[in-house]
């Protein structure tokens, strides 16, 4: 008992992140990066890359999405709880896609 602080309401939780204010200048950097990413994705689509076209397109889209999530949505400055929550959502989506896709690929013979 002596080792622990009596803190049932979790007031002194060291995990609490301070309210970080992102500056307009930082937002402007993100904004420019997103516009550049949009131009890049159009340019990349016009180049013949074979199987890599959709991969490049998704890579650019994922990069843009991560930038939005980290800075526009402030996840970079949030507590580990929030970071874990966000990551778990995307991970669950990927798990569901993988399972559903493996189901289709192992059943619908002839279409793959």
């Amino acid at each position: 008992m002596s080792e622990h602080i009596h803190d049932p309401a979790n007031i002194t939780n060291p995990e609490h992140a301070d309210h970080h204010i992102v500056s307009p200048l930082q937002y402007t950097y993100v904004f420019v990066a997103l516009l550049v990413g949009t131009i890049l994705t159009v340019v990349a689509a016009k180049i013949e890359l074979g199987i890599f076209n959709p991969i490049v397109a998704l890579a650019i889209a994922c990069t843009k999405a991560v930038i939005v999530i980290l800075f526009f949505m402030h996840v970079y400055y949030q507590s580990k709880l929030i970071k874990l929550t966000v990551a778990s959502g995307f991970l669950t989506f990927l798990v569901l896609v993988t399972l559903a896709l493996s189901d289709y690929m192992s059943r619908a013979w002839g279409l793959w």
Binding site: L34, T38, T41, A45, A57, L58, A61, K64, V68, I69
Partner: peptide, 10 residues
């Protein structure tokens, strides 16, 4: 916004 960032290329 993010949904659209994927919809546009796809």
């Amino acid at each position: 916004d993010i949904v659209w960032l994927f919809l546009f290329p796809l």
